[in-house]
Every structure is written in structure tokens, then in C-alpha cells.
């Protein structure tokens, strides 16, 4: 059976590595500060007979390639096209965290949102209406506490459904100002003509408007030649030495 790939994306310090450790049994360094995970870690696990390979992407505030981290995370999602991208969100600061989730949802529809630290949110009296979120966003949403291992099964259930194609999320697009939307419309057909549908045309059009030159060079590299690039930043297991 084919191994499915899961990418973990999210803001720094939302507990991606904790979730990664909980799933794989590895021990990536964890701690409460932004920027701990400096390498992409890969691990494996099995759930309900399906084998998964899971990649812990560096935590980023956005995916606009302002920095190497963001470029690495962005390129992984767009070039490697994992079977599922799980966006890990901090339940206590959803507003900023959703910012990244919406960006991911522009890049791929195979998204599961994973609201972590739900125990902290409860403690602080933050109530999250999951059904409402799913309805507004058009993608499955799971709430978990990675460190207390609460809700992991529910998350994997949703991941499995998306990975197998049983569930095809339809992310609600962000509607931009009329002016931007018009420009996107003008560019989109050309994007499709030049690149086909390998990359989401609307997203490419937006990136072009935003002046993302890194993306151009990435797309120009022969067929995206992603494997080598991803391998270079890949590090198995724990990054620390002793």
C-alpha cells in the first residue's frame, strides 16, 4: 500500500512539533518559544492500516517567502504536494493563526485544520464553534491537545478521509478587493496556459501580483525539481546532538 504524506504547517509555537512527536514517537525539541524547529523533520506512523509519512515544516507567520523558513515551507506544499496539509493553529490566538491557514487553503484544497491547545483555550474561557468554522472555511476542522493527546484520533480520522479522497474539502476562497479580483481574473488564464493546472492558478496569479520573484525562479527550475531541494533541508529525528 502506498504511504501517504502529511505536512504540518502553522505559526511558530503552535505545538506542531508536539503533535509530530505524539504521532511518530520521535522526540523533536519542543518548548514555548517561536523558532525552535529549524529543520524539517520527517517521521512515519500508521493509523487504521494506512501508513503515513509526516513532515514537520518550520513554523512561519506566513507563506509569502519573506524568509528561508517560509520559502522552505511554501515550496514543500506547492511542489511536493503532500496528500494532506495539516495546519496547526493555536486555539488561544486563532485570529492570527487563521491568517496562515487561509494562505494554505489558497495553495491546496487538501487541508485539515487542527486547532491545538484546546485545553488552554478552555481554561482561558475561549469557546470555539467548530461547526461554524467548518462551514465558513469549507475544510475539516479538528480540535486537539497534542501534549495531553486529546482528540488525536478525531484529527487522524479527518486526515485519513482527506488523504484517501473520501472527503474533498472545498476551501472558501478569500475575496479580495474588486480591484485585486479583476487583476487576478486577467492573469489567471495566462497562468493556466503557461503552467497548466499543476499549481493553483489563482494563487500563482496573486503571487505574481505581489511581486514574488522567488516563486518565478522556483517554477522555472526544471519541472519544479523539488526532490533534491527538499532532501537538503530534511533531517530525520532530533536535530540536537547531545
Amino acid at each position: 500500500m502506498m504511504e501517504k504524506t502529511i505536512a504540518l504547517a502553522g505559526n511558530p509555537n503552535t505545538g506542531k512539533s508536539t503533535l509530530f512527536n505524539a504521532l511518530t514517537g520521535l522526540s523533536q525539541h519542543t518548548g514555548n518559544w517561536a523558532g525552535k524547529t529549524v529543520t524539517m523533520a520527517a517521521g512515519h506512523f500508521e493509523y487504521q492500516g494506512q501508513a503515513y509519512r509526516i513532515i514537520d515544516l518550520p513554523g512561519t507567520y506566513s507563506l509569502y517567502s519573506n524568509s528561508t523558513d517560509e520559502e522552505v515551507a511554501r515550496n514543500y506544499i506547492i511542489l511536493e504536494q503532500p496528500d494532506v496539509t495539516v495546519v496547526v493553529l493555536d486555539a488561544t490566538s486563532l485570529e492570527r493563526n487563521l491568517n496562515l491557514a487561509l494562505q494554505v487553503m489558497e495553495m491546496t484544497n487538501r487541508v485539515v485544520l487542527c486547532i491545538n491547545l484546546i485545553d488552554e483555550a478552555m481554561r482561558l474561557g475561549v469557546r470555539i464553534d467548530v461547526a461554524k468554522l467548518q462551514e465558513r472555511l469549507g475544510v475539516p476542522v479538528a480540535t486537539i491537545s497534542a501534549r495531553k493527546k486529546i482528540g488525536i484520533d478525531g484529527l487522524l480520522e479527518k486526515v485519513g478521509q482527506v488523504a484517501s479522497g473520501q472527503l474533498i474539502p472545498e476551501p472558501a476562497p478569500i475575496v479580495y478587493s474588486r480591484e485585486i479580483e479583476e487583476k487576478i481574473k486577467m492573469l489567471e488564464p495566462h497562468v493556466v496556459r503557461l503552467l497548466g493546472n499543476r499549481f493553483p492558478p489563482r494563487w500563482v496569479a496573486l503571487r505574481l501580483l505581489d511581486g514574488d520573484t522567488d516563486l518565478i525562479s522556483t517554477l522555472k527550475s526544471p519541472a519544479g525539481a523539488p526532490a533534491a531541494e527538499a532532501g537538503e533541508v530534511m533531517q530525520l529525528g532530533n536535530a540536537s546532538c547531545h
Binding site: 507567520y61 506566513s62 509569502y64 519573506n66 524568509s67 485570529e95 492570527r96 491568517n99
Partner: peptide
């Protein structure tokens, strides 16, 4: 530049 984008990302 980058700082502007970073600040925007942070809210």
C-alpha cells in the same frame, strides 16, 4: 521591504 511584510503578517 521585509520588515513591512513581517509586521503585516504579525497583525
Amino acid at each position: 521591504g521585509v520588515l513591512r511584510r513581517r509586521l503585516l503578517d504579525l497583525g
